[in-house]
Nucleic acid binder design. Structure first.
Lengths: 212, 212
DNA sequence: AACAAGTGTAGAATTGCTTCTACAATTAAT
DNA sequence: ATTAATTGTAGAAGCAATTCTACACTTGTT
């Protein structure tokens, strides 16, 4: 049985400054924590394969692995690992999706250090961290099921495609990235445009600037 | 005359974790540095107004002030302040513009801690930090005499086409609007993309948001 | 005045994208 | 429990966009 505050962390983020900041906070909370770092998704998986990790702090904006599927992929290797998503994207649109996919918490990069500390402590000690805001949204969506943010209408896969589109990816690149056929991408693009009642990329970009 | 390592810093970034990380690095380099922090552009200006700052580490991705103009605005208040841009955007596209606007250095968020330290030290001690890559580009732009605002490179017709493109018009619509053939539009689109060194509409939209 | 570079235009061939249709697997609704 | 809608996927055919090439006309350079 290991000592009460002897936990193992893995910080996965492509910005070393960010890793440094998080690392510092963890050390403040758990003074003899063991902290690993990874700058991309590939390294993240390597470490997960070799080492028992208590909490993975995961940026979801990696160039090499940017979808919801990274959560099941990670848990497939080490099912007990807790995952705290640490994202620059708007909580309102993404948090629920990631929690549903198996994350233990979702934190926006704009959060204060105190919130980060709460999240770390909360997940380590009680297994999850859910902000009041997210709780409210869960309730809302349970009761009314009316999306306030038009982007919430999009399915997970549609959001993935939309994000790649606004990055400037062409259909073929997206098809390769997601391992589907390019006609499939076209179909998704159509559905996205229909749902948002738009018909070109410029408007899609507008939408994302406005709502996320 | 103040002691040699008694400098004053202001870290402006909307992510507190990032501020924390940078703060730590500064303290390692300048052990009795005075460090201020701001989470948005408004607060940044407030602090600049009240306090003499030696070096401002500035994220250019603020929700409330995201354009080149933040540099002249800052320098208008405190002309001697040095500014290190710390951006998630690609150096190749943005660094020169910010340096031209009056920044003393440009650092990508993906940079290592060592690079960050070099940049901090270099600006404090010698007034500027310019990577070899950026030096090369300055030389290039000096030789080829390309204008500061890349959009100025575009001919009138090219600007017309570009404007329609960022409105979301397709090649055919543009062809009809301008009474030319659609292949002509394609040719223009190509020339625009070549001149701006981009290859998709999303980047074009970025360009216009930044430079107009 | 001569030459180079940039501008506005377009065709043929190729490549990329959309539309329409379809279907199995979920998920929601009655 | 049954029906309806949504989601993830894709093929065939058609339409749109790109590439490469070309050429006359303007502007800039020496």
């Amino acid at each position: 049985m290991k000592p009460a505050n002897n936990y193992t962390f893995l910080i996965a983020d492509d910005h070393s400054i960010v890793r440094q900041g998080i690392s510092l906070l963890i050390k403040e909370l758990f003074f003899n924590a063991k902290i690993y770092q990874a700058g991309n998704f590939k390294d993240t998986l390597s470490i997960i394969k070799e080492t028992k990790i208590d909490l993975l702090v995961l940026d979801i904006n990696f160039p090499d692995g940017n979808s919801l599927s990274i959560i099941p992929e990670t848990k497939a290797i080490q099912p007990e690992v807790k995952i705290l998503i640490f994202s620059a994207y708007d909580e309102d649109i993404y948090a629920l999706r990631y929690l549903n996919a198996g994350a233990s918490g979702y934190l926006n990069k704009g959060s204060s250090e105190d919130e980060m500390k709460n999240a770390l402590r909360s997940i380590i000690l009680s297994g999850k961290y859910i902000t009041q805001n997210i709780k409210d949204r869960i309730l809302d969506s349970y009761i009314s099921k009316k999306p306030i943010n038009p982007l919430e209408q999009l399915s997970n896969r549609e959001i993935e495609v939309a994000r790649l589109l606004i990055k400037g990816y062409g259909n073929m690149e997206i098809a390769e990235t997601l391992n589907v056929k390019k006609t499939t991408v076209s179909t998704f693009k159509n559905r996205i445009f229909e749902k948002l009642e738009i018909n070109n990329l410029a408007d899609l970009i507008d939408f994302f600037n406005l709502y996320s």
